[in-house]
Write a protein that binds this DNA or RNA. Sequence first.
DNA 1: TCGTTAGATTACCGACGGATCCTCATTGAT
DNA 2: ATCAATGAGGATCCGTCGGTAATCTAACGA
Lengths: 160, 160
Amino acid sequence: MLPLSQTTGYALRAMRCLQEPGGQPVLVESVADYTGIPRSYLSKLVHKLAKKGLVTARRGHHGGVVLAKPSAEITLEDLSEAIDGVAWRKRCLMGLAGCTEETPCVLHEYWKQTLQEILVRLRSVTLADMARHQDPGVERFRADHGFLATAEAERNHAPV
Amino acid sequence: MLPLSQTTGYALRAMRCLQEPGGQPVLVESVADYTGIPRSYLSKLVHKLAKKGLVTARRGHHGGVVLAKPSAEITLEDLSEAIDGVAWRKRCLMGLAGCTEETPCVLHEYWKQTLQEILVRLRSVTLADMARHQDPGVERFRADHGFLATAEAERNHAPV
DNA sequence: TCGTTAGATTACCGACGGATCCTCATTGAT
DNA sequence: ATCAATGAGGATCCGTCGGTAATCTAACGA
């Protein structure tokens, strides 16, 4: 019932491979090969992210996918929301249809606070935060796809 | 990927209808009628809870279901674990098979702490806590099923 | 012992998410 | 204008989960 499906994990892995807005597009196929995410599935996933305004995809020669906004402005919550939606935030923990703010169930307040804590956590991590970690695999991939100017920027931050 | 499925909600609603250990058994059918949970499905659910040692079920005349331990010792975590298992606690957020304590992924620590926070919350609520709330519906149900001695005990506590 | 009461067990169905394959549509280079 | 590159989209498969129904079996009372 809570968010963060397997597909959200895919989204995380895929987004790490993309360039900042205005950068060079990366092929869905390259990302699929590198991450091991099924190509066709990743294609649909990317489309979903595009509809939510998180990435921009262009078809044809020299097409590919780029971030639609700076990685520092893309949170884990954004991804979760794009993939899994927000329905889970509204569902009653006990599954009672009549549970509302006015007619709360026994666990209403408890659950509301729990969800709030989770949301705060999801908002506290951005793609840029993730890039600050050493990750030889991703750095190799980036080097192969035109990420030549990012290495320095990553050194100016502490780990998440 | 996270726990707390619809079925866990069912378990919560069902357990609230049961007596403390040694008390009078309540019929699966009664609970189903009152909660609206499908009878057959609830039967399987109860069996699962019985295998985990949370309830005791007896067949035949004057059979039914009772809590297997005091409601104050049954946490939301117990229910979640009985129904949804614990696999979700071990899964990597990014879905990386090779992510371990020794070879952690970029989000490993972040996710570990998040899960810890959630677990603490799940452990902080017991069935007894839930009973402390006013709930005319459940109290009516209890009155109809031999819960004559519990009303006083419930008055000695603050809400959750 | 026999029958009734109740939970246990089995088989099965439908919906949904993850996943795959194949084809369509768009873009840019020539 | 044409062709190849590349994302978009439809059809379909598979496994899991919620849900139903029919049957089996243990416990008790008459």
